[in-house]
Nucleic acid binder design. Sequence first.
DNA 1: CATGAATGAGTGTTCATTCAT
DNA 2: GATGAATGAACACTCATTCAT
Lengths: 212, 212, 212, 212
Amino acid sequence: MGVLDRKNRDRLLRKTDILKAAEHIFALKGYDKTTIQDIAGKAQYATGTVYLYFKDKNDLYCSLLEEKLKALLVKIKEKIGQSEDAKEKLDIFLEKEIEFFRENKDFFRILVSETNGPRFDIGLRISKSCVFREYSEHVSALVKMAQQKGTIRNDLYPAQIADIFRSIFKSVIIDWLRNKPQKPGDAEKISRFILDIFLNGVGRKTKVISIV
Amino acid sequence: MGVLDRKNRDRLLRKTDILKAAEHIFALKGYDKTTIQDIAGKAQYATGTVYLYFKDKNDLYCSLLEEKLKALLVKIKEKIGQSEDAKEKLDIFLEKEIEFFRENKDFFRILVSETNGPRFDIGLRISKSCVFREYSEHVSALVKMAQQKGTIRNDLYPAQIADIFRSIFKSVIIDWLRNKPQKPGDAEKISRFILDIFLNGVGRKTKVISIV
Amino acid sequence: MGVLDRKNRDRLLRKTDILKAAEHIFALKGYDKTTIQDIAGKAQYATGTVYLYFKDKNDLYCSLLEEKLKALLVKIKEKIGQSEDAKEKLDIFLEKEIEFFRENKDFFRILVSETNGPRFDIGLRISKSCVFREYSEHVSALVKMAQQKGTIRNDLYPAQIADIFRSIFKSVIIDWLRNKPQKPGDAEKISRFILDIFLNGVGRKTKVISIV
Amino acid sequence: MGVLDRKNRDRLLRKTDILKAAEHIFALKGYDKTTIQDIAGKAQYATGTVYLYFKDKNDLYCSLLEEKLKALLVKIKEKIGQSEDAKEKLDIFLEKEIEFFRENKDFFRILVSETNGPRFDIGLRISKSCVFREYSEHVSALVKMAQQKGTIRNDLYPAQIADIFRSIFKSVIIDWLRNKPQKPGDAEKISRFILDIFLNGVGRKTKVISIV
DNA sequence: CATGAATGAGTGTTCATTCAT
DNA sequence: GATGAATGAACACTCATTCAT
């Protein structure tokens, strides 16, 4: 059993090595311009080794997305359950994603280039992924809850609002990762900024009074 | 003169044939998976013919984007000058873009996949394009004006707001083109919807009183 | 008749135009790198026009060589008959060739690259040419006569001596055309130089006494 | 160590296979008409295999020339140092080259077609080669020494004499390889023949008395 | 299991040649 | 006859995938 364990552990280690290398190269060059040799070389393995762990190039790519998305989901779900407030949940969601993407810029790049807009299918190598669907539905569920709690207008389809939510998020994060120095407290600030725009829009208001 | 005219017209016709075919295939398969033979075949020409009108694959692709963007810009500028009101200008901008993209779904697909988020640079074959820059700046200028007129908060960078504006737009249009039947009056309705979300956000408000 | 004459003359004029352009381009780029469009363009004709005067690329190339060789032969034969002395004939031959090649550097280039050594057949597009054979035989005849008159050793095959003769010539002319400014009196001097080396070699002799 | 050795040896073997095939095809068809598929086919490899050993077609071609020239130089230098006499050195040089070219007719063909006359530059893919320069300079040095020792007239530029020397050599070898059956003792005889013509020319002399 | 050399189908691009105008 | 746009075969080179060691 110990032997099997080590085998499994070794196998996992190699897979992780390769995925890490793939992440970097795919982010740098995009799917088509990336070669398996690039990845194998970066991971310090032989070309053929990659095929011991992944069926083909596409499988490697999708596995990469799945693994990372899964990790992102775990991170999000972990904290988000601790709050009951809808707005707070959205806030936590944003903060966790921001943290995650700051630590995984390459993955962010890939994800952005992969999801050319939400649920869009040009070359959507990812679309069949259960994790991706789970991720999408998780955001939709957040929105739905916020609608039920009165935080978000309920005259709109949750899925569409979720799309808009994520597209604003994407836009702001791209700007942040590209043009700003990333500082420790950023996650919180940016999260508030996005939520503000998402909930209140960018229109100029002098005063807003909630009557209810 | 008549002869030259006909020649030029013929030349233009062929170029347009090829561009039309290219638009379709590029939208369907993406840049890398598209072959010149695909395009030539679709346009009913021989492979070599494409090279009589375009230097190489990249030139064909960029020409396609430029031509379309130019047409889009013309369409937008035409009407937008007729209004003085900032909000109305944004509204016209949206309506015109919506109309254009409904008539040019393939181009929309390409544009979306090309601009993986605003000012993002993986494989930005388009980034050097003057027309694209002009387009970007035009949107920024719209936002800036709206800030000066008090329609949009002026505590934000115009370029960033423009990014957010376009990313909301993209998100909504993708949803519309993919999932809804496109009906005549849509442009107006969708434009209002986007503007509403953009300016007021999706937060639930019971009443808003502007004091000033 | 006059009409036919003009037609023929026109035809000849066009052929000459094309040949002149071809000469320049072939010399510049070599056979394979030269395109028919290059030549047509340089001659200010359309691509197809070339095919009205020459069957194909190879025909154009061979015609070019033939025409020029014919002209060279005419020039050589013209003067060479006026002398009876074998050495003088060789001298005239050299002078005339030198003059011709100074005025036809492009042709010289082509000829050199074509006849990679005498009677060698890698890609010898020329080898079937009657004129080329006539040219070769003419040189051989010169040598043969010089052998009979006692100017050249007669223990050697005339054709081989002719080869050596031409290869020395080629070597010296290449050097002259490439590295020296070409001056009026050169033909005579160079001719003497070549003949000297050809007949006497480059060995150092302190004194030579001819007894007979 | 043994493994690496075998790997290196295998690699060398393949390279040699390909070079051998390339040598044959290039000699047969010339650079431009030769395709990589030709070479790969002849060497019994797939097209792509060639690119494992050579960067591109030009690299293959140049490597071929370099390898062979290097081998030729080694062969020449080996024996030539053993003599002090200038004329003997020239003799050895010729003999060794003749032997080499008899064993490497294809290479000879390529070299001849590549060096369209000495220091001529149309398509000189070889000209940048250090080995080629070394080879040229080696011949010039031989001539220079022969001038100093009084074997060759010293009123001429060594480089030019070297050119003439090589062009006579080329002419004679072409004739020999093309038209004569190559017999064992040939190298010696031909070498003497070339030297004779080179030093004494082909003029008829009844008696030559050296006075000094 | 790991390797990396070998494979060969596939792509962008060129250009000799043809032919409708 | 002259044109030059159109053709499509051909070629250099790449790279995902396989498999003998």
